[in-house]
Amino acid sequence: MRLAAPLHRLLELVDRPMAALQRRIGPQRFAWIFLLPNLVIFAVFTYLPIVLNFVYATTGGLAVLPSERPFVGLENFASLLDCRDYLDPSSCSKDLFWRSLFNTGRFVVLQVGFMILFSLITALVLNREIRGRGFFRGVFFYPVLLSPVVVALIWKWILQREGVLNAWLVAFGGEPVQWLLDAGWSFFWVVFVSIWAHMGFYMLILLAGLQAIPKDVYEAAEMDAASPWRMLTRITLPLLMPTMLVVVVLALIKGVQTFDEIYVLTGGGPGSATMLVVQYIYETGFAAQPRLYGLAAAASLLLAALLMILTLLQLRANRKSYRG
């Protein structure tokens, strides 16, 4: 009550000039006054970086300040896309970009495919009345809580030359394997670790989707003596499709953006066997010498275009599923 009076006075103080302003510019334009703080924040932290990204992508040289960079038009894009044979990265002028792009494609297909499969299986199991269900839900979700760097370091200790896995192999009379020095094994492990780290999140979404399916549908199917497989394929999966769609698109976008875990686990090596496109952008723009900001900006715009296509596909698929 004590506070109410000064607050009221303060509001009155603000009210008069605001009312005057509203009368002067009209209620439609007046809305912009309220939007202004938010718009300024968006402009500075979102739109300006996007504009700067285009500026860098269309300029060359090694200077950091845009004013000192010469305009080169689409030269950076042309350089990235300059290939004799698009299926052979070695024939491309920027072969590391293409290798990272192919790796990203391979990684996304394998990681998203297997992760959704395992998430679905886990969600289906944990949706049943089993003992220790809460505990297992916690166990599968736990890696999601870990920082990607911690995940990568844990697995590095397991997989390195004298890591836990090789110690076990040797203890059981086997030969140690260079898990992170062989291109094939390295790729397998980055996919595996990524699935291990993120599966819990998608499992949780699918679990929520499963729990949203009305129980009476299953009861009706049981009364009709439908087999469990038939219930899965004719009830569960079709009714889970909208949730599945969200999971697929989220996983695809996250998959394309993967960087930190792999960077710590393998550094993109051996060679460029596990280098994904985000790492290529980081290395080109920030880690390598010289820092080719223009090339990195152009590559990031190409990646943004790829992600936009994925998002549009999601919107289109969503629309279709809502229409039935």
Partner: peptide, 9 residues
């Protein structure tokens, strides 16, 4: 290991 365990430069 020294050269192959890393990517990039």
């Amino acid at each position: 290991d020294v050269w192959v365990s890393q990517g990039g430069a």
